[in-house]
């Protein structure tokens, strides 16, 4: 194993997070070290000397890893925010305008008072959650023009997405349970369009937190 291979393995180990977020970045680092080694070798250095000089120029893992970790964490956070936005879009259809679980439950629920409270809460949480996801999505992309986005912002995005991804299904499923007239079709719709997508968002948020 060459010195460059050892360095890249150490760098990979110093950057936690989903492999897809690290892949291109580490490939570019490898390409760079390959080009730099060849340039030094062409200047008359032995392969070992050329690799050592290329690695010296590139910087130690301790110096380089923090910047790479920021990049990976921000990438993971952007993906999590995008997932949350996409998952939130059909929720209004599911709860209010299309399948309309809200009004059907309101009519059937034995404990209509609690149902109505939860219905109000889920509307607020949904609105705030979607708004936060859009802000996070913009901040981790074009927002980097003006804002110093780093691991802290990535952590905040992931924590926000995780909280929303847990709270909405819990409230939604509780509301369904309260109706007392849950049909197989509505239960399947809730699993397919609410529980499963939010579970994927929560998983992505957890991976983002691991990258921070």
């Amino acid at each position: 194993m060459s010195a460059v291979d050892v360095y890249l393995a150490d760098l990979r180990a110093a950057i936690p997070g989903p492999s897809w977020t690290r892949r291109d970045l580490l490939r570019e680092a490898g390409d760079h070290l390959e080009d730099a080694t060849e340039a030094y070798a062409a200047a008359g250095y032995t392969t070992a000397e050329a690799e050592a000089l290329a690695l010296r120029d590139f910087g130690s893992v301790d110096d380089i890893a923090p910047g790479f970790r920021d990049t990976v964490a921000i990438g993971a956070a952007r993906r999590t925010a995008l997932m949350l936005v996409l998952v939130m879009i059909p929720q209004a259809f599911l709860w209010d305008d299309g399948i309309d679980l809200g009004s059907s439950g309101r009519l059937a629920a034995p404990d209509a008072g609690l149902f109505n409270v939860l219905d109000t809460i889920i509307e607020y949480v949904g609105t705030i959650g979607a708004l936060g996801a859009v802000i996070a999505l913009v901040a981790t992309a074009i927002g980097q023009r003006w804002l110093p986005i780093g691991r802290r912002a990535a952590r905040l995005t992931a924590a926000w997405a995780f909280a929303i991804a847990v709270v909405i299904p819990v409230i939604g499923l509780t509301m369904l349970a309260l109706t007392g007239s849950l049909t197989v079709m509505v239960a399947l719709a809730a699993i397919a369009f609410m529980a499963t997508p939010f579970a994927l968002v929560a998983l992505s948020a957890q991976r983002t937190l691991a990258a921070c």
Binding site: L25, E28, H32, F58, D63, I64, F68, T71, G75, I142
Partner: peptide, 18 residues
């Protein structure tokens, strides 16, 4: 500057749309 620092900067500039 350590040449490795340029890659996070390139990625940031790309995501920022520059």
């Amino acid at each position: 500057l350590p040449t490795g620092t340029i890659y996070p900067a390139l990625r940031r500039l790309e995501k920022a749309g520059y």
